[in-house]
């Protein structure tokens, strides 16, 4: 029996033990939700693991990561389940049982989806506005020396101030909470991207620039046909970081007094001591972030093939 087989067997053994405990072990904790959602979640995780392991085999490399990760996940879930539901040794309110956490997805899916939609809408619009403004203005400021000499120092002073710091003031300043969080995200995405766009334009490869100057009689063709496509890969390359930053801004903003959104959902659940909902909300946020990251990585691969 080789190493891969042993790893495979170990992880499935853990999975079987976990399933057995969830389904069969006598539960000591009162107020447990039905375990259907938890079982479904476990099966989804197992499916994802099998998919990752299968993909690793397709690539042909001996992968250890999926096996290591899945064993850790099963072990943690096992400890969690045993300490809460079976032995009832954890804090009954602060540490909800996995049954209750995963049951939240079943009972609250409408609310959760609505909040995700609300957060994503805010996130994406703020993100897009910030990015488009940053690239457009950064391009001009990078290309025209006088504009650059004027704008760069100003942006340089403003950029290091975390928008999170000014967000409470913005919430007070703006008419609605929604507009305040939009401004926070736009600012958080705009300033760093504006600076880096200027830097990228200034440090454009001299050879490309010379060819372009020989070929482009007008500033307009220069910007549209040369500078924009030249910048494109680095903008897409910075997308992931920008997205993470804006998500941070958003969640922070939502913690401060929103009435919708995932950050609000978590905050609100904690306020009502509904920790099962809070943990479920955190899991949702993590999943959404991961999905967005994967999407961006995919776009990067597809769009900047020439690099």
């Amino acid at each position: 029996m080789n190493v891969t087989h042993r790893r495979f067997l170990q992880s499935h053994l853990l999975f079987a033990v976990l399933l057995g405990i969830v389904l069969l072990a006598p539960k000591a904790r009162p107020g447990l939700a039905s375990c259907t959602a938890l079982i479904a979640a476990l099966c989804i995780i197992e499916g994802l693991f099998l998919l990752a392991a299968w993909r690793g085999r397709q690539v042909g490399k001996a992968q250890t990561a999926p096996f290591d990760i899945i064993r850790l996940v099963w072990a943690l879930l096992l400890v969690w389940e045993v300490m809460t539901s079976v032995l009832h040794r954890a804090h009954p309110v602060l540490i909800p049982a996995p049954e209750n956490v995963f049951d939240t997805f079943r009972s609250q899916w409408g609310t959760i989806l609505r909040n995700i939609a609300y957060s994503l809408q805010l996130l994406l619009s703020g993100f897009l506005i910030g990015l488009v403004l940053a690239v457009a203005l950064g391009l001009f400021a990078g290309w025209y020396p006088r504009l650059r000499a004027f704008a760069y120092p100003i942006a340089n002073v403003l950029a290091p101030i975390p928008p999170i710091v000014i967000s409470p003031y913005l919430v007070a300043l703006m008419p609605t909470f929604r507009s305040a969080s939009l401004v926070v995200i736009v600012l958080g995405v705009f300033l760093p991207n504006f600076l880096s766009t200027i830097n990228r334009v200034v440090s454009i490869e001299p050879q490309i620039l010379d060819s372009a100057r020989m070929l482009c009689p007008t500033g307009r063709t220069m910007i549209w046909n040369i500078l924009l496509p030249y910048l494109f890969p680095s903008v897409i390359g910075g997308l992931r970081v920008s997205l993470t930053t804006s998500l941070l801004m958003l969640n922070f903003a939502e913690l401060m007094g929103a009435t919708h959104g995932m950050g609000y959902y978590v905050q609100n659940s904690i306020a009502y001591a509904n920790y099962a909902h809070a943990v479920a909300g955190i899991i949702v946020i993590g999943t959404v972030v991961t999905a967005l990251g994967a999407l961006v990585a995919r776009l990067q691969k597809q769009w900047i093939f020439w690099h």
Binding site: Q207, S211, R213, P217, Y230, H307
Partner: peptide, 27 residues
Amino acid sequence: GPGTDRSIVFQNYTLFPWMTARRNVAF
């Protein structure tokens, strides 16, 4: 300054990497 009455071939070939060969020429 540069003008389109002159054209140049540089020592290190400088095609625009985001255009195909044909689009480079057509540009």
